[in-house]
């Protein structure tokens, strides 16, 4: 299977990339790691006339301390995220979820920014960005803007990124000392999440002091399980208390029915996996 014809440019700066998108018009497409886009091109589900490859822009790669936050360039690969000490220590949940994505070869090429911008509801990093209150910086012809993850996802494969804009970095607060876990449910190696739960918990003296919970593939966008979070806070980190809080996991969800799972099964999964994720996070 061979993609249909397109032109290709590899700009060396964000400004040049934005200019290329402006010139390319509505049939221009950004190429990040390519591990969502190239499969789609091969199947000819999309036929852009121009690919703007961000692979030549050094400033979009890398992970750095940014005051009290950890900031990750959008073109940083999953592999580099996984090996980074700042991420391991302060944004552990991101590393845990990233480790479950696809396989080793894909993680060498796929990027955090590409995954978030693609906004596949079964993608694993959206729920993490949402649960951890990430901030996303987007560059365009008029300069840059920063949006919270809670305002980033608009719908199925749709975000607030405009046609001539580029996601440049993702910034996370530090969750140093929190417990966390990403509980993913799928049936085979490499498979997408039928449902998954991202949980980060701060336990103080046996009591859950703070909780962050995000859901994967329980709607058109990642979903923040606020009902679960509120029910957890102030509770002891015990199986009974966590199970009761996990009953709130389906609030505000709109689980899809597809060949992998019916929506009521996904709702069942969301509760069970929330319980598992929180218990694992609580240690």
């Amino acid at each position: 299977m061979i993609p249909s014809k397109f032109d290709y440019v590899k700009p060396a700066s964000v400004a040049d990339a934005v200019a290329a998108l402006e010139q390319g018009g509505e049939d221009a497409k950004i190429l990040a790691g390519g591990h969502s886009l190239i499969p789609v091109l091969r199947l000819r589900l999309a036929a852009p006339t121009l690919l703007v490859d961000l692979g030549g822009i050094a400033e979009l790669r890398g992970i750095r301390e940014d005051g009290d936050r950890v900031t990750i360039g959008a073109m940083t690969t999953y592999y580099d995220v996984l090996r980074d000490d700042l991420v391991k220590e302060h944004v552990t949940l991101l590393a845990q979820a990233t480790e479950t994505v696809a396989d080793g070869q894909v993680r060498h090429r796929g990027t955090l920014g590409g995954s978030l911008a693609h906004a596949d509801p079964a993608g694993d990093l959206g729920a993490v960005a949402l649960a951890l209150d990430a901030e996303l910086t987007i560059a365009g012809p008029g300069g840059t803007r920063t949006v919270p993850a809670s305002e980033f996802f608009e719908g199925l494969f749709t975000t607030v990124i405009g046609e001539t804009e580029i996601l440049t970095q993702i910034s996370f607060p530090r969750y140093t000392g929190w417990g966390s876990h990403y509980e993913k449910f799928n049936r085979t190696a490499q498979a997408w999440s039928m449902c998954a739960v991202a949980a980060a918990i701060r336990v103080d003296g046996g009591t859950i002091a703070e909780a962050r919970v995000g859901l994967t593939n329980m709607g058109a966008t990642p979903i923040r399980a606020r009902g679960v979070e509120q029910a957890l806070v102030g509770q002891p980190a015990t199986a009974d208390a966590v199970r009761a809080a996990a009953e709130h996991a389906t609030e505000g969800t709109a689980a899809p029915s597809d060949a992998d799972a019916a929506s009521d099964y996904r709702e069942h999964l969301a509760k069970v996996l929330t319980g598992r994720a929180v218990m694992a996070a609580a240690g």
Binding site: L31, R42, Q190
Partner: peptide, 26 residues
Amino acid sequence: DTSNCGACTVHLNGQSVKSCTVLAVQ
């Protein structure tokens, strides 16, 4: 040809990749 099977795996700058999911220009 769907990025699943890994038969096309090669090393690109020292890292394994599925060469069906990389453009030659990249």
